[in-house]
Structure formats: structure tokens, C-alpha cells
Amino acid sequence: MGETMEAPVASAMRTDAPPAIRLEGVNKWFGALHVLRDINMTVATGERVVVCGPSGSGKSTMIRCINRLEQHQEGRIVVDNIELSDDLRSLDAIRREVGMVFQSFNLFPHLTVLENCTLAPIWVRRMPKKEAEALAMEYLERVRIPEQAAKYPGQLSGGQQQRVAIARALCMKPKIMLFDEPTSALDPEMIKEVLDTMVMLAGTGMTMICVTHEMGFARQVADRVVFMDRGEIVESGEPEAIFSNPQTDRLKLFLSQILRGH
């Protein structure tokens, strides 16, 4: 995709602030399958991390552990100074701070676009409805589809749905955004509109972790690229270093496959 190299977005990474996310020795098994093997990673406030790797490498599982859609079985995960545990209150607190965008959009089909965006602010953030609607319209304008507010998700294209999903997550005013292959289910012509939205978001200084194979996007916005394979972090570094000067055979193989695909 990334043939046209666009202007890189200035980094908003803050080394003075405490880290937004810290994973220490995280392990996870699905039955006998060891899907996350001793993951250690720190994401600074305002940092933008792109996670890539072959399918089944554990990248989705890792970011799903960060807002506890999956439970890790060993190690520590600290998000925004709150440690993930079985305590429901800490879970509520973390989920309010962390927004997530899914590969399959997961919009609520029985609610309008506007209602999709106002549901959580009203019922979780306890925001007055008018305020929530104004906020939702503000974010729908940011993702450039305010005119679709009264429609239902089934009436929108895939790219529009994903932009609504981004707006829906932003309406909770999260400090951290997780993207789980946000463009993988989209037609090529719609990938750009979603990536543009994500670039716009990167420009606001949001802390982001994106699981994606969009190398152009990674070059443009990422402070760091993390390459995962078979449940472990194999390489990690600045985009240029990772893409131009891969150290391991696994990353070389992966990059050659990715590039051949495009």
C-alpha cells in the first residue's frame, strides 16, 4: 500500500511522563498452546507502536490482554498506573481509559450511528444525553461522516463503519487506543480513508498500539515497530531500522512475504 510516502507525523512521545502501558513477563496459554511467551514491553505516553507479524504470532492476543478481553496467566500488565487483576473496579477503570477498534468493526446494528457513539458515554460515563450527542457529532465530524449520524450501520460501507467505530471509541475520551487489524476486512479503496483517520488521530498525540500490516502507515506515524512471531517479540525498533535493516531471518522472511503481496 504505502507507495506514496506521506509526510511523517511528529512524535508526541513523552519520556518524562510515566509509561502508559507496561507488560512484564506476560505469558498466556490457550490450552496447551503457549500463545504469549514472556512478553516485555513498555509504551510511553503519546507513543505510537505498530505491531506486526505473521498470523498466529500472538499480536492480537497481546493487545487484547491490555484491556482484558483475554486474561494473561502469568506476569504483570499495568495500564495508566492501574494493574490488571481480577478486581472488577480496576477493570472498569482501565476499560474506560482504553479504546479499541476491531477488525470486524463490531458496531451495534440495532442502534443508529449516533446511538452507537452515545451509548457508552451516557451509560458508562454518565454524561447528559445532549452533551453526549454533541460530543458524538464532534467526533463524527473528525472522522468526516457527520451526515451519516441518523443511519444504521448496515446502511454504511465498510470504510464508513470502521470510521464510526473509531469515533465510537473516541467518544469515551480514552487515553490509549488499541487497533486490532483495523483495515484487514476492508476493500482496497476504503483502506486509505481509515488510515487517514488513524493518521489524523496520531496527530492529536494519542497513545496508540496498532496491529497492522500497513507498512506505509507504520513508516508515517510509528515511533516504534514491534515484530512478533510464535508468541514472542522478536525485534523492536524504529520503522526505518526494522524495515531496511532486519536483524533476524524470521523478520527478513516476513518482510519478503509482505512486500511480495503488494
Binding site: L69, A120, V124
Partner: peptide, 18 residues
């Protein structure tokens, strides 16, 4: 109703009963 609906709502901070 797909698991994704539960996950999306959970990620927004909603409780299971809700």
C-alpha cells in the same frame, strides 16, 4: 449474537448485565 458484540461493549466499559 456474535462474540464481537460482547467484546465491543466490554471494551467500552459496559457491564455484562447491561
Amino acid at each position: 449474537v456474535s462474540q464481537g458484540q460482547w467484546e465491543a461493549a466490554e471494551a467500552l466499559g459496559m457491564r455484562r448485565g447491561e
